[in-house]
């Protein structure tokens, strides 16, 4: 199956800090697809369902979050994740 790809600009003040990281992994876990994120279009890729790994990404405001997913609900997953980023993780 082909990877589904998406990207979203981090526009919230703190970027991918602790709480946004938790929200991102919680959302990612609701989908069956494998989901990875990166802060460059060519990786390195990080498992979006791993809270420990996501928190170590440390992406700041203004950086672009690249996402790729694979599975039957991959498109839905990336739409939901991009939406979370665009909503500033519901924090502001």
């Amino acid at each position: 199956m082909q990877d589904v790809k998406a990207h979203a600009l981090l526009i919230n003040e703190v970027g991918l800090h602790a709480r946004p990281s938790v929200k991102l992994t919680q959302l990612a876990k609701r989908f069956a697809a494998t989901i990875e994120i990166a802060i460059a279009a060519d990786g390195p890729w990080t498992d979006a369902k791993s809270p420990v790994k996501i928190m170590r990404v440390k992406a700041a405001k203004g950086e672009t979050l690249y996402m790729r997913a694979n599975g039957t609900d991959a498109e839905e997953a990336l739409r939901a994740l991009a939406d979370l980023v665009n909503r500033k993780f519901d924090e502001e």
Binding site: A18, V22, T25, Q26, K29, R30, K49, S50, P51, V52, K53
Partner: peptide, 24 residues
């Protein structure tokens, strides 16, 4: 505690919850 709870909140089994905390 935060990492284990995050893992647990997704419905993961006990082994996965412990593994996530210990990944730190």
């Amino acid at each position: 505690a935060v990492m284990a709870a995050t893992e647990a909140s997704g419905g993961s089994p006990l082994d996965a919850v412990r593994a996530t905390a210990e990944e730190l």
